[in-house]
């Protein structure tokens, strides 16, 4: 019987099964799609939620008590004064900016140097080992860095530079620079890696030395990515809290030298928020600092993002 069937010539189908049956696979597919969609937009929702929350908490203060001129021009941050509380954030802004600036002076040469070495010179196992090491460095908790600043760097700075306090811009800047360097290295190295190898081959075949290839071909081609790496480092510096709180000395003042203590915006929020009454002016003022930080880091990251997109367009 079976043999007989095989001998018959194949026939074109004259009818087909229904094609509108919804089976388990169909439901599974829809279910997974919905889950992924929720997962995908949740990040956006949470960030927006945080922004709305911070704005709401700071809003009363901004409307009632806030004085734009005072906020940006007065160095007097005296939120707890019972007679006349003032909310000048200038000293805090200068504190954050000076520490971040110092950090970048430390981090840019280190991270670009490391990225160039890993991306252009190191080969094989050295390269892999270094990449893993850099990623490990990025994973050191900031409180550990703060601890190093507080206990080791502090004494070292007092000894080396003969200054009264070791907790200052220099200390926090170095710590923050070392913290930001690994992530900057990783991003900068990605930017170098994105430069097509044909460019290097072309330049080498024309008789360029290794360094000439890097300086005249690779770095210009990777320029946008490198700028983005630096900007993300700046963003990291602005937002860092714990290490800065521990290493700056936490004193509100406009610094005269790199060895003066300062206080950062982030550290102020971290240190004071727990001791304010919810809804008080002080509470609102801290949230206003938060809004300001949020806007600044948002702008930095947005710029970095636009710069990176700039490369891809070309």
């Amino acid at each position: 019987m079976a043999d007989q069937k095989q001998e018959q010539p194949m026939q074109a189908a004259t009818s087909i099964d229904a094609i509108d049956k919804r089976n388990l696979d169909w439901f599974l597919d829809k279910g997974v799609q919905v889950l992924i969609f929720i997962g995908g937009i949740s990040a956006i929702i949470f960030v927006l939620g945080i922004f709305v929350f911070i704005t709401k908490e700071g809003f009363d203060f901004v409307l009632s008590r806030f004085d734009l001129a005072e906020f940006f021009t007065s160095p007097n941050w005296r939120p707890t004064s019972s007679a006349n509380p003032t909310y000048g954030a200038l000293a805090l802004i200068v504190g954050t900016a000076s520490v971040t600036g110092t950090a970048m002076i430390v981090a840019i040469p280190f991270s670009l140097g490391a990225a160039i070495y890993i991306g252009e010179f190191a080969t094989g196992k050295t390269r892999e080992a270094l990449k893993i090491l850099v990623e490990l460095l990025a994973a050191i908790p900031s409180v550990v860095w703060g601890f190093i600043g507080l206990s080791i760097m502090n004494a070292l700075i007092i000894d080396l530079f003969n200054v009264p306090i070791g907790l200052n811009i220099f200390n926090a800047g170095v710590i923050l620079g070392l913290m930001a360097a690994p992530i900057m290295t990783t991003i900068a190295e990605d930017a170098l890696k994105a430069v097509p190898d044909e460019y290097r081959a072309a330049a080498e075949a024309m008789g360029a030395t290794r360094w000439q290839v890097i300086r005249k071909v690779v770095l210009p081609a990777a320029k946008n990515g490198l700028v983005a790496a630096v900007l993300l480092g700046v963003g990291r510096g602005f937002g860092e809290t714990m290490a800065v709180l521990m290493a700056t000395g936490h004193s509100v003042q406009i610094p005269d030298s790199i060895f003066d203590s300062v206080r950062a915006l982030t550290a102020t929020i971290a240190a004071e928020l727990g001791e304010t009454a919810v809804g008080s002016d002080h509470y609102g003022a801290l949230f206003t600092l938060g809004i300001f930080l949020f806007i600044v880091t948002f702008l930095i990251n947005l710029t970095a993002d636009l710069v990176v997109r700039g490369i891809k367009k070309k």
Binding site: P196, E198, Y199, A201, A202, A203, E204, A205, M206, G207, A208, T209, V217, P220, A221, K314
Partner: peptide
């Protein structure tokens, strides 16, 4: 010196590879 050798011996690659300048 490779740089000097490559001055004497120019090379054209399979895929055109002008520099991005």
């Amino acid at each position: 010196e490779l740089a000097q050798l490559r001055k004497q011996v120019g090379m054209v690659f399979q895929r055109p590879n002008p520099l991005p300048i």
